[in-house]
Amino acid sequence: MAETPRAAAPDPWARLRGATRARIGLGQAGDALPLREVLALQMAHALARDAVHAPLDTAALAEALRPHPVLQARSAAPDRGTYLRRPDLGRRLHPGAALPAGACDVAFVLADGLSATAVQRHAPALFHACLARLPGWRIGPAVIATQARVALGDAVGERLGARLVAVLIGERPGLSVPDSLGVYLTFEPRPGRRDSERNCLSNIHAQGGLSPELAAAKLAWLMREALNRKLTGTGLKDDADPAGLDGPAGG
């Protein structure tokens, strides 16, 4: 369709776009997309790829978690390329990890996952809001983990003697949201836990997603229930609130 100017006529696509974020009614350049749409897609893809490959600024993140004590850890994946190819290495702790044995009710792991941007932007707010809802809880040191998958939290939690581990992790970036954070909660973490033994909160971001404050409320609720009932996973999800605690597994 040649984009003939129709000054007075309202564009019927405009109202349809109120019902979906899908890229509809884009127009044509011959059979192809108009250049502005090609470049818009390239920009969204570039932002998503940059989010996948950006390194986590661990110093800035530690600063944002103050005054809570922070430890650093990394997985057995030495670099981003290996991390993407070898999810098994991203689930294993690097042998040199210095994590002191202890005992706590919950340990938080802040993991880069597939979007360090998401962790950088949303994890501190979620962390502080959650701590505020857990008076009297023994909170382990916050562990900042790089080249990390969700299951790395199992090894971290076990080493710290945590009854629960909450992994705050960057989700796979989409074109519209490159900085979506997910949280995975696991009771009695130890290597070998299955995904069905975790509870997940996903889509925590500022573009119409779950806010860090609301996510903290849900997470604190899940944590209290998990300790009361001594489990996480499908058994806990059944009684979860109707807002829905289900979500796509991100890593």
Binding site: T20, A22, I24, L41, L175, S176
Partner: peptide, 10 residues
């Protein structure tokens, strides 16, 4: 899909 972008499956 519209504009090559699946907004549900990302």
């Amino acid at each position: 899909v519209p504009g090559a972008d699946d907004i549900m499956l990302n």
